[in-house]
Design a protein around this nucleic acid. Structure first.
Lengths: 230, 230
DNA sequence: CGCGCTATTTTTAGCAG
DNA sequence: CCTGCTAAAAATAGCGC
């Protein structure tokens, strides 16, 4: 009366639902029998097509899953994560301490929170800051010098270019139709440029920076008159 | 020929092993049939009595377990840990950046790695360091002053104590059996103490520290002659 | 551990309620 | 969704290899 069915998806929904129900019970029963007959731990997890969960376990599905994870090296996703977390926390603590240390040192370098330093530490700090200001000033001088050199060179190039332009104009005016007044204007322009760009003024700026610190702002203001350098 | 067996532990080990093997296969087969027939997701996890793991899954046992956990709300211990880890990593990144920033600033304050600063930054840095050295020197002066005050007071106390001791000795010697030479020795000791502890020398030290920085070592050396203060 | 065999038990497809 | 029925199919206990 009954037909042997092929193991393939049951298309007719009601039949499929009935089969699902029956066979599910069957598996659960078999699982229980196995666990009793052979004293083994069994868990069966089934999700129906509609996403509903059915599970059987001889003990506790979660326990079996835990045992499964520990058995398959499932520590990977769990214990390694815990290790990572631990490691990251240690990292955080270490970084926090370093940051605290650096912050304290920085405050000391800025002359803050000095109350808890003793005389010896204060002396060392003073020397450190003195060395620092020396380096800062030295670096600033170099920077100023190089900027001035650049400006001087640029100025020289401009003067040279102007001279060449003037010569061309003279040559052209020799050809006839340019007034002498135009050439005079160009020469005046050139003179203005030379006044701002003598190497003499560069020397003055450097000297001012290294000897009288309170004049630094004036120095930088002078340098702010750049000729549009990059 | 065959007997119906009762569902209870099989005592005879070989039979139990065989049954375990056969029924295990049977369950796996049933599980597979169910998953195909009803388009469902099935996982079976079996631990033999000896602790050996056997598992079947229509897809992946781990996937089914993950789905099971998300279904039962087992996300607690896992996803929260992941969130913590994420949070800690962000913490680490933030701290690293802050540390890097502080380190850079500290190096600048020490006058190191100044090449990449422009003139404006150098000027600000210079002012910062100048302010700093002013504060350091001021703090040092206060410290020196308070130490000198403490030493002066200590010296005065000692002189007072010595005087009292002297008077007691004089009174005792009036009683008869002490030579005058011992009293002279005590007075000499007292004079040495007063020479090292005048408020005049304290003023000198303070002046030297605020005006001539290169003399700082001498100042601290003078102060190193402590009278055993805590 | 596996495989095969056979008699027996168990499961289950299909249908009805 | 369940229950019960029945006949067919499947699983399996016990055995030997």
């Amino acid at each position: 009366m009954n037909e042997k069915i092929k193991i393939r998806r049951i298309d007719y929904l009601p039949a499929r639902q009935v089969t699902f129900s029956k066979r599910r019970r069957g598996i659960f029963k078999k699982a229980e029998e196995l666990s009793i007959l052979c004293e083994s731990e069994v868990a069966v997890i089934i999700f129906s097509q509609t996403g509903k969960l059915f599970d059987y376990s001889s003990t506790s599905t979660k326990d079996v899953i835990a045992r499964y994870k520990s058995h398959t090296g499932g520590e990977k996703s769990d214990q390694i994560t815990l290790h990572q977390l631990q490691s990251e926390k240690e990292n955080t603590i270490r970084l926090s301490k370093e940051l605290e240390d650096k912050t304290r040192k920085l405050r000391h370098m800025k002359g803050e929170d000095l109350q808890d330093l003793d005389l010896d530490q204060l002396n060392k700090l003073e020397k450190l800051v003195e060395v620092s200001i020396g380096r800062v000033i030295k670096t600033k001088e170099k920077k100023i010098m190089s900027e001035i050199m650049a400006l001087t060179n640029k100025g020289a190039e401009l003067i040279e270019a102007n001279n060449q332009l003037k010569q061309r104009l003279v040559m052209l005016s020799a050809g006839g139709d340019i007034e002498p007044a135009a050439i005079m204007e160009l020469e005046n322009l050139n003179n203005v440029g030379e006044e701002g760009m003598t190497s003499e003024s560069a020397t003055n700026v450097t000297a001012c920076s290294s000897s009288a610190l309170s004049l630094e702002d004036d120095c930088s203001d002078i340098l702010s008159l750049k000729l549009g350098l990059p």
